[in-house]
């Protein structure tokens, strides 16, 4: 019997691969949303397991806020040349130039919210019927109720009360023209599961995830990178610290944590002892308790 034992990481991996294949089979024109963060890197790894030796049946789509850490873009381009898959990039800057969105100003100015418009524009331009994303249900309360196949109306909106029941592993991806589905293959991974999976699989990550010296300043108990994209108040002084990032989204809303962890095993150890969940280091969620839910309704990933 014991040889048919299934470890929890194997179970999560098998489920994610199954979901990726369902997406490929049920949709005409899917794309994998690639942010350069660890969750989307894990998605790429899972897609390799799902489809090799064939090519991915979808391109990667990066919504570039223009406020990236240079390391992220470097990593993205290396990865693409290694796996030889198609990458499509759409720029928030273009949406701003076209007057589709207005740049935020002030202390908390961020392009994180603007991404939504660029993404929705890309979805209609490329006629995508499914977008695969790396969101997880443990990230946030509103995510805890997200389906694996989450249907959005033609305005990209999520209506929590209208969600389709999702039974067994029978995913219903039938939609009308103009609607699209967000697919979340790693819904059931927690942050710790992702790290343990990265460790087990030996998945490479951008250097930002590991400790390094950086110029940072403290705000609301979090450490922000000193960068031209972040408005810094005069009293917020820049210091050099050993930090690492737990998420790497838009530079303007991603804070670092003080850390000595320079490898995956050390990060896992740190996480087990951690007192703060990863979204705690994202400014955009602190704005209000229901922040994520509001953004999701509006089409945010």
């Amino acid at each position: 019997m014991s040889s048919y034992h299934i470890n929890y990481l194997d179970a999560l991996e098998a489920e994610a691969i199954y979901i990726l294949r369902e997406t490929a089979a049920q949709f005409e024109n899917p794309a994998l949303l690639f942010s350069g963060g660890k969750d989307s890197i894990v998605l790429v790894h899972l897609a390799l397991k799902a489809f090799r030796p064939a090519k991915f049946p979808f391109p990667l789509l990066h919504i570039d806020t223009g406020h990236n850490f240079p390391e992220t873009l470097q990593f993205r381009d290396n990865l693409i040349s290694k796996i030889k898959e198609r990458l499509i990039v759409r720029y928030v800057q273009d949406s701003i130039d076209k007057g589709r969105v207005k740049e935020e100003t002030g202390k908390y100015a961020s392009r994180n919210a603007l991404q939504t418009v660029t993404l929705l524009d890309a979805i209609s331009e490329l006629q995508l019927d499914a977008c695969i994303g790396g969101a997880r249900r443990d990230e946030e309360k509103a995510r805890a109720k997200e389906r694996i196949f989450s249907v959005r109306d033609e305005f990209g909106q999520w209506e929590p009360r209208m969600q389709r029941p999702e039974l067994w592993n029978l995913y219903n991806g039938k939609i009308r023209k103009g609607e699209n589905v967000r697919v979340f293959p790693i819904s059931n991974f927690t942050e710790l599961d992702v790290w343990r999976y990265i460790e087990r699989e030996g998945i490479e990550l951008p250097s930002l995830y590991f400790t390094h010296e950086r110029d940072v300043f403290e705000r609301d108990g979090l450490w922000y990178p000193d960068s031209p994209y972040i408005h810094r108040e005069p009293q917020e002084t820049v210091v050099r610290k050993k930090v690492r990032f737990r998420t790497i989204g838009d530079m303007t809303c991603t804070a670092a944590v003080l850390s000595q962890a320079d490898n995956v095993a050390a990060i896992i150890e740190e996480l087990i002892k951690a007192e703060t969940t990863e979204r705690g280091s994202r400014l955009d969620d602190k704005r209000s308790e229901a922040a994520m839910e509001e953004r999701k309704r509006g089409g945010y990933f």
Binding site: R137, D138, K141, A144, K145, P160, R161, Q163, S187, N188, T190, L192
Partner: peptide, 9 residues
């Protein structure tokens, strides 16, 4: 009113 998924280990 819905199904919410929670994780612990």
């Amino acid at each position: 009113i819905d199904v919410a998924y929670k994780y612990f280990s």
